[in-house]
Amino acid sequence: MKIYKYKDSVYCDEDLSCEYDNYAGDLYDLYLDLKEDNKCGETTRYYVCDKYTGYDEPEELIEEEFSDLVIGEYESED
């Protein structure tokens, strides 16, 4: 599972609040922060500003278009 960092906050679909003091939520939370900063938006589909590629889910947009924000991967201990 990928871990993303944006504006000094860490995001991952796994709850990493015990490992990171700056854990801010899952990929949807990251999407909302990126949207607030006009980095992406949504209509019927999710998209990156200045690009024409659309995505059905915000998590898909994050994984495909914001890979530069990945700082590591989390491996579940299951």
Rank of each mutant, 00 (worst) to 15 (best):
M1Y: 05
K2M: 14
K2L: 15
Y4F: 15
Y4L: 06
K5D: 00
K5T: 07
K5Y: 00
Y6F: 14
K7W: 03
K7Y: 09
K7D: 07
K7P: 04
S9A: 15
S9M: 10
V10Y: 04
V10W: 07
Y11C: 09
Y11L: 03
C12K: 03
D13K: 04
D13W: 01
D13H: 03
D13I: 01
E14C: 06
D15S: 10
D15P: 03
S17R: 05
C18T: 10
C18V: 09
D21K: 05
D21Q: 11
N22G: 03
N22P: 00
A24Q: 07
A24E: 05
G25I: 02
D26P: 03
D26N: 15
L27N: 00
L27Y: 06
Y28E: 14
Y28D: 15
D29R: 13
L32W: 04
D33R: 15
L34R: 02
K35E: 10
E36C: 06
E36W: 09
E36L: 11
E36G: 14
D37W: 03
K39P: 08
K39T: 02
C40S: 04
C40R: 00
C40M: 01
C40L: 02
G41C: 02
G41V: 09
G41P: 01
E42W: 04
E42N: 10
E42R: 12
T43E: 15
T44Y: 08
T44D: 14
R45N: 13
R45H: 14
Y46M: 00
Y47I: 12
V48A: 12
V48N: 12
V48Y: 03
C49V: 13
C49E: 12
K51L: 08
K51A: 06
K51M: 12
Y52I: 06
Y52F: 07
T53I: 10
T53A: 04
G54L: 07
G54N: 09
G54M: 07
P58N: 08
P58Q: 09
P58W: 05
E59K: 14
E59I: 09
L61I: 04
L61P: 02
L61M: 07
L61F: 01
I62T: 01
I62C: 08
I62M: 05
E63Q: 15
E64M: 05
E64D: 15
E65C: 07
E65P: 07
F66L: 10
F66K: 11
S67F: 04
S67T: 08
D68I: 03
L69V: 08
I71M: 01
I71A: 06
G72W: 12
E73Y: 13
E73H: 13
Y74K: 08
Y74P: 01
E75V: 15
E75M: 13
S76Q: 13
S76V: 11
E77I: 15
E77D: 11
E77W: 06
D78F: 11
D78K: 05
D78I: 07
